[in-house]
Design a protein around this nucleic acid. Structure first.
Lengths: 207, 207
DNA sequence: GTCTATATATGGATAGAC
DNA sequence: GTCTATCCATATATAGAC
């Protein structure tokens, strides 16, 4: 779809996503979104009655883009260590392309922890990925491929190692890399391999 | 120091910290801070001319409270694995007591990545903890105690595993623990041991 | 130092013309 | 459907009395 074929509604939607993702709900200004979309402020209210509604639409879109991609790895037929490599690889890749999304999601969930429950619930429960992951891990533990570990901890560890360096980018880039943007970018790319092997080394049982 | 001995300035300062940490700069209201301090709104401006200045003071205080504690582990004389256990333990303990601080710091650094550089620089460079950590790790690799790993990755992994579950509390608590607050609290406490052994298992070389 | 009252600015939302 | 002009609520900040 070319730029010209985009409907005004879509143009607004994309502009809003850009601004909301960068600034968060409180920081975003309807005026700025209008400017970004090159239309008038009043038109925002014509399409999406309130700031809150517009934000909600964006938030839902972002989550339903991210979550299935994050959980897809559970479905594959690969052996467990390949699954983990696949997970880390696709996740870090995804974040390199959308580095501001984690902060956006987190700051919104901080602002409004409740309103989101249903939305998330819908996306996850339908998929049931977490249960599958638990079964999967417990099976590997029984087989003796990996050491005993609560699947919840393993899962949280996996996402922590992937996401946090993006969430805390300013501080890590500043403190460790003296604000050298390029070096931090390289560092993040290195993590595609590094994190996977960090996890695998931790849980693997040598035969 | 008892409550009554606290000066008005300190009372304001503490109230402001409470509100800013919970709501962030954009979300915080001077009115709310005044209420929390049980004083008048105008008095805030009498002591700290602007919201921005008040915030800055709070932010500096929080960082200088957190950072030295996080980096203290480098100094101890313990062997490396004890150091790691100590780090994870004190850090998670600290976060259990101050669960909103990570989000506060992160959201501010997101809002304003530059202004903070000097402040951080001062706290870290003086201490030079990172360089010490690098030396430490490289020495252990040479000795054959741990497998080869870039110290930067190891350090980022350590803080990621500790902090992220607090940053992403609403989402993890919601998705994995069906919003059961108590179970999530237990889960976080378990991590004091779990994360340490996760890291150690990953880097240790068996003799 | 602490208060009440008020100025000033900003930003979300609406009215109404085209 | 899109614009200009404007309303109105909110929030920071100041003036001035005590």
């Amino acid at each position: 779809m070319t730029e010209q074929e985009k409907s005004t509604e879509e143009i607004i939607f994309d502009a809003a996503q850009k601004v909301f993702v960068l600034k968060g709900f409180d920081g975003a200004r309807m005026q700025e979104i209008a400017q970004e979309a090159k239309i008038n402020k009043a038109l925002l209210h014509y399409y999406y009655r309130t700031k809150e509604k517009l934000f909600h639409a964006i938030f839902e879109r972002v989550l339903s883009y991210i979550i299935p991609r994050v959980l897809a790895f559970v479905e594959s037929d690969e052996p467990i260590f390949s699954k983990i490599e696949f997970f880390v690889n696709t996740y870090v890749e995804l974040l390199l392309k959308n580095p501001y999304i984690p902060n956006f999601v987190i700051s919104e969930l901080n602002r409004n922890p409740d309103s989101i429950a249903e939305m998330l619930g819908g996306l996850m429960v339908k998929n049931d990925a977490l249960k599958k992951f638990t079964v999967l891990i417990n099976k590997e533990i029984e087989k003796g491929t990996i050491r005993p570990i609560r699947p919840e901890h393993l899962f949280v560890n996996m996402i922590s190692l992937c996401i946090f360096p993006f969430v805390a980018r300013p501080i890590i880039q500043g403190v460790i890399f003296k604000n050298d943007k390029e070096r931090y970018q390289e560092f993040l790319m290195e993590r595609k391999k590094e994190v996977a092997s960090f996890i695998i080394n931790s849980i693997k049982i040598e035969k």
